[in-house]
């Protein structure tokens, strides 16, 4: 597979190629012009609040729904064909399991459908950590076990691209940890992974690249490091009547500024020196220093304009 990926990169075939994709449901536009290229081997988080259009995008990648306009390609194929060929598989959020099959039978059925040998069944069960519960009825499995079963099913076709839609929703901390270590082990083999999530920590910890989605559009797209940089730094707020933009940006270490009435906001990494400067060289007073975290970056990037402060 590594060979496949390297060659694919060389020839420039994208794992995923979304081009101006729009999806409308009646009057509602769920996805509003998303263009995105994902290279083979990338682990990408699709991050955004509920209703941002993540699941709609995932559905189109899997051929479960058709875009209203725009083009979707997966490894150069139409999504439906890519799914049928086993190039792409997915772990969906909920549903999709029959209670009266056992874990092992469910995986076996998937193997039959993909034309995989019986040996692939045990292997997938083992890799998903389900060996102990293989004979158990799906209806008697915990939420975490069911999610790992979906993972085992997704592994069976040995896909080039694995899509996870909010994979840890409803799992406890331990279950989430186990699930992600299974995914992480798997991603080391060079598989392309796209996961939709609204857990910032997950995006931060497991993705090489984070795509922020809000109201059906991509609002930011960068490496994890870039996202962290976006979130890093602190803010100094001060009361400084009559301050000008030029005065503020001239201060060493200031990256961004904001003036509202008598208040000024200065963003930067070295807020101590900014504060020292403000107190000693200017008339600013009432200083407050707050740190920004990923949450703030997330909110700033994904909140609606109307509700943003």
């Amino acid at each position: 597979m590594t060979l496949t990926d390297t060659a694919a990169t060389a020839t420039g075939v994208a794992a995923v190629d979304l081009d101006g994709v729009v999806k409308r449901f009646g009057a509602v536009t769920a996805v509003d012009g998303i263009s995105l290229r994902i290279r083979p081997g990338e682990v990408v988080a699709l991050l955004g609040p509920n209703g941002a259009g993540k699941t709609t995008t995932v559905d189109m990648l899997l051929g479960l729904s058709q875009p209203s306009s725009g083009r979707v390609q997966v490894y150069g194929q139409r999504p439906h064909d890519a799914v049928a060929l086993g190039l792409v598989s997915a772990v969906m959020q909920t549903g999709g399991l029959l209670k009266d099959y056992t874990v092992e039978e469910t995986v076996r059925l998937t193997a039959v459908l993909f034309g995989k040998p019986a040996t692939a069944v045990g292997e997938a069960i083992e890799r998903a950590g389900l060996t102990d519960v293989a004979k158990r009825l799906v209806g008697k499995c915990s939420g975490g076990q069911q999610q790992r079963l979906r993972f085992a099913m997704a592994l069976l076709p040995d896909p080039e691209l694995l899509i996870l839609d909010e994979p840890t929703t409803g799992m406890d901390v331990a279950g989430r940890h186990e699930f992600w270590s299974a995914i992480r082990d798997d991603a080391r083999r060079g598989r392309t992974v796209i996961f939709a999530t609204h857990y910032l920590e997950e995006a931060d910890a497991y993705a090489d690249r984070v795509v922020f989605v809000r109201r059906g559009r991509i609002v930011a797209d960068g490496t994890s490091a870039e996202v962290k940089a976006l979130a890093a730094g602190r803010t100094v707020r001060a009361t400084w009547p009559g301050a000008t933009e030029a005065e503020l940006t001239a201060i060493a270490g200031v990256e961004r500024t904001e003036i509202r009435g008598d208040s000024v906001w200065l963003h930067g990494n070295d807020t101590d020196s900014i504060a020292r400067y403000l107190l000693t060289e200017t008339g600013a007073r009432d200083l407050e220093i707050t740190s920004r975290n990923l949450e703030d970056a997330f909110l700033a990037l994904t909140a609606d304009e109307e509700t943003a402060s």
Binding site: L64, A90, L97, L98
Partner: peptide
């Protein structure tokens, strides 16, 4: 029953 359980949807992620 299979549609209610979302199984039909799952099967659409297979070559069936």
């Amino acid at each position: 029953i299979e549609r209610a359980a979302g199984w039909s949807r799952q099967l659409r992620l297979t070559p069936l």
